[in-house]
Design a protein around this nucleic acid. Structure first.
Length: 609
DNA sequence: GGCTGCGAGACTCG
DNA sequence: TCACGAGTCTCGCAGCC
């Protein structure tokens, strides 16, 4: 039977600690909000395996002295391990109340849950407590009903620490048994502090610039609606708002798929492609095919593009800006080991490669006196492919500075290029690369990656509007060029068939219940993407130490997008930081081929990218 | 008649 | 059945009060 206590004063907390086991403690916080700038602490619970306490800090006059005692505990050399569920969050709360440097030996039971079995329906504490510990779980809303000082709330909070401790006891031996220790202890746990720092920092957003673009975009959308209505012979009205602004409205909503089908058919267009459910599709590639037929399609594509931009980014991002002007996304550690970003998703900001007048990335900026640095791994996935497959041609390319995409284009499309121009150092390389830009791009994004990840000849023929026979030749030619890649993929499938899982060189696993063609594709993709994720995590842990050791830079990691890391740094230290960051990233992870890092700097994310 | 939840379709990124 | 991974928007329908 676990001994439960509720504590409201510092003396009682100290006497609870006097008889507690300091070696290993589970810790959990209760807060008022989820974002760093907005949150305050309501209390925290601790569990040493034998007893559990909840320390109630809401409206508590002794809050400061209790936090000081907590700081003493969490930074004390006697403390060997702090266990948390979703560690970055609790670490962030600690940081907010001034406990910035707790001991770094931690165990996150949410992360252990996913490295042990990424296929669980949920890794949340409540789900695990119910599913694995057989506990009856109460929701936060239910627990909070009678207030944060109620018995129910205290019990709820105590359970969080207790269950976290019990899950730790359950997970630790499994991690050892499944050889997940290196991945968990040496990559994922140090990485929790990187996630904490990202959650604390956020990235600064220029709300004025966002608003300026919004006004322009809304005006353009109105013009487009009017023109579309005219071309389709649909009546429209212009409505005047209270502040003198105008909006155009017509009876057709061009943003509705069903209504688009309707109006296009009325105008005499023939739609052929269908969606998954057999309905007629009006997706962008369908419209692109119709574009040469006139102004209506052209304007419709433009309308849909700008509509998406406004609805998903320009209108929504300001709503999620924190009180200090920064935007704090939630980073989630997911099935492939890659991070994902939500509320808001900052990993899918439009790239502005097409140089449109709207540039969302230009709204993400460095504070006054600072510069943004964007560092990304060049050809990361292909380098990992070279390492994983030990393909002679790929190893040769990367070790001797050859342009692998141009080589692929040369082989697949029969460009008849001389061997010399394939070297990046060659004087004619840049000109050749420019001349065959489209073929190179087509080989890279349309053929090589899709083939590696399992695209079929049918899929490729549909993408390019070519015959299946031609698509088959492309695939054959690619595998003739890189036969060891073909062998590696087959080897992966064979391993998958026997073991029902695959693993990366960092020991990260992905398990499959059913082995079918989809699982085969996912498995090989995982070997590459999962390794890329490990690489990024290792690099970011090392970069965190680099930044810590150079406080004069006032450098912060503010964002990461799969193969890319964004920093802000004091203007005068930009050059120094750039060279050190590059050095750390290039040496972060050992492959059989060298890693390269491309670095851009600028006042905005757009400039630096 | 209005609200909510959900699937579909579409689009953004690496 | 037909490259992998992610999140999120709007539309339009079903079900509920």
């Amino acid at each position: 039977m676990i001994h439960r206590t509720v504590i409201v004063d510092n003396d009682a907390f100290r006497s609870w600690l006097a008889t507690a086991n300091w070696d290993t403690m589970a810790f959990d916080t209760e807060t008022t909000d989820l974002k760093y700038t907005e949150l305050d602490i309501n209390g925290f619970s601790l569990c040493d395996g034998k007893k559990v306490c909840y320390v109630d800090l809401a409206d508590n006059v002794q809050k400061d002295s209790i936090i000081a005692t907590l700081k003493h505990v969490l930074t004390h050399p006697k403390m060997k391990l702090i266990i948390m569920h979703n560690a970055p969050f609790d670490l962030m709360v600690l940081h907010k109340v001034g406990i910035t440097d707790p001991i770094e030996r931690i165990f996150c039971t949410m992360t252990s849950s996913y490295v042990i079995d990424e296929n669980r329906p949920s890794h949340s504490l409540k789900y695990r407590a119910s599913d694995e510990l057989g506990e009856t779980v109460v929701s936060f809303t239910e627990a909070e009903k009678e207030g944060v000082h109620s018995h129910n709330f205290h019990t709820y909070a105590q359970n969080d620490a207790l269950w976290t401790y019990q899950l730790f006891q359950k997970d630790l031996p499994i991690i050892k048994k499944q050889n997940l220790t290196m991945l968990f202890r040496d990559i994922e746990m140090p990485f929790q502090f990187v996630l904490r720092d990202l959650a604390i920092e956020g990235v600064l957003m220029d709300a004025k610039e966002m608003e300026r673009q919004k006004v322009l975009a809304e005006a353009l959308l109105d013009k487009l609606v009017i023109r579309l209505a005219e071309l389709a012979h649909i009546p429209y009205v212009i409505q005047k708002g209270l502040s003198g602004d105008q909006t155009a409205q017509c009876s057709v909503n061009f943003n509705s798929t069903a209504q688009r089908v309707d109006i296009l058919q009325k105008m005499g267009y023939t739609l052929r492609e269908t969606t998954d459910t057999g309905e007629l599709s009006t997706a962008k590639d369908v419209l692109e095919r119709l574009r040469p037929t006139g102004e209506f399609i052209d304007k419709l594509i433009q309308y849909l593009t700008v509509r998406k931009l406004v609805d998903s980014f320009i209108s929504k991002l300001p709503l999620l800006q924190c009180s200090d002007g920064r935007v704090r996304t939630s980073f989630n550690n997911t099935v492939t080991g890659r991070l994902s970003s939500s509320k808001p998703n900052l990993q899918n900001l439009p790239s502005n490669r097409t140089k449109s007048e709207f540039d969302v990335r230009a709204c993400f900026v460095a504070p006054e006196g600072k510069t943004l640095i964007v560092a990304d791994y060049g050809g990361q996935e292909l380098r990992i492919l070279a390492d994983q497959s030990q393909d002679e041609i790929l190893l040769d390319c990367f070790n001797n500075g050859m342009d692998v995409h141009l080589i692929a284009a040369n082989k697949i499309f029969g460009l008849n290029l001389s061997d010399e121009v394939l070297f990046e150092e060659n004087k004619d390389h840049e000109a050749t690369k420019e001349k065959y830009k489209l073929d190179r791009h087509k080989a890279k994004n349309g053929v090589v990656f899709p083939i590696i990840y399992g695209k079929t000849e049918l899929g490729i023929s549909q993408d390019f509007g070519i015959t299946v026979a031609t698509a088959t030749t492309w695939i054959t030619k690619f595998f003739e060029l890189c036969p060891d890649v073909h062998k590696a993929i087959k080897k992966c499938h064979k391993f998958l068939y026997h073991h029902k899982y695959v693993y990366t060189k960092s020991g990260r696993r992905r398990r499959f219940e059913r082995i079918d063609n989809r699982a085969k594709r996912q498995a090989y993709n995982f070997l590459i993407q999962g390794t890329a994720a490990d690489m990024l995590k290792v690099a970011m842990v090392k970069l965190r130490h680099l930044i810590k050791n150079n406080p004069q830079w006032e450098c912060k990691m503010v964002l990461t997008v799969h193969d890319e890391i964004v920093f802000e740094v004091l203007d005068e230290y930009t050059d120094e930081a750039v060279s050190k960051i590059e050095e750390v990233m290039v040496n972060a992870y050992k492959l059989c081929v060298p890693l390269t890092v491309e670095i851009g700097v600028g006042r905005t994310y757009s400039e630096a990218k």
